[in-house]
Amino acid sequence: MKAIRLNFFSILTILIFFSFLYSGCNKQKDETAVLKVIFDHKVKDRNLEFYKFIYKAKAGYPYKIVTLRYFNSDFELYKDDNSILKLDTFHYREADKAHEYTREMILDIPAGTYNGFSFIHGLGDKYNKPIKGTEKHSLPNTVDEYLDMYWPWQDDGQYHYMKYEGEYIAGNDTLSFKLHMGPTNGNKNYITIDKLPFDDTTVNPGDTMVITLVLDLNEFIENPETYDFNKFGKGIMKNQEAQDILKKNGKNAYSIKKVEILK
């Protein structure tokens, strides 16, 4: 008798436990939606095309773009109730052709209504700690591309924030430019991109909200300050004056092209 009762109760317990687990899972699933951020580019009013002398810098030089790699981090989504959802992560974008795999960042977010997006151009403090010796990197050390952003003055931080490189024509000379941003002489030098607002957009459980960002590369050398390739030369990693201009100009370089809901 005793054994049967025990069995009955254990079955009941198991049943209750599983139904609880099931509804628990379901409930969690119910609230979860997906955020997909697409990192796209333009150069003033043209598309980004590599290895073509089709752009003109305000300082007067025709230029071409060869390399574009950068980090973003510390993403924030703004909710309709004025609260902020912090997305504590980073993204590496490599736009030189053949590396399109870095075009999208995909994350789980709670379902809800959102109306703005902000982030850091570069890496926030957590992701770019000063290190030495055999200390661990701030980012996973299993990805060559991150390690390739190596910044030599590791007392300031470990990574370039951006490598934006190409060539420009000055008179008879074809020269190279390298807009390498990173922390230097105690200056953090990352850019805080303020809230980019968009219309109230509701993402339901299981659906995907797609935010397409566009980074206008011409902004770095044009607006509000004209950046003169010739004046700063190729090596600007420790040149705070150049970093300051890029910081100021980069502040308005991003815009949101569209926000869509995928069911």
Binding site: Y51, E165, D173, T174, L175, S176, K234
Partner: peptide, 13 residues
């Protein structure tokens, strides 16, 4: 030597 694919990290002069 300069050619059109010379890496920007090389000095073009």
């Amino acid at each position: 030597n300069y050619s059109s694919t010379l890496d920007p990290n090389m000095n073009h002069e």
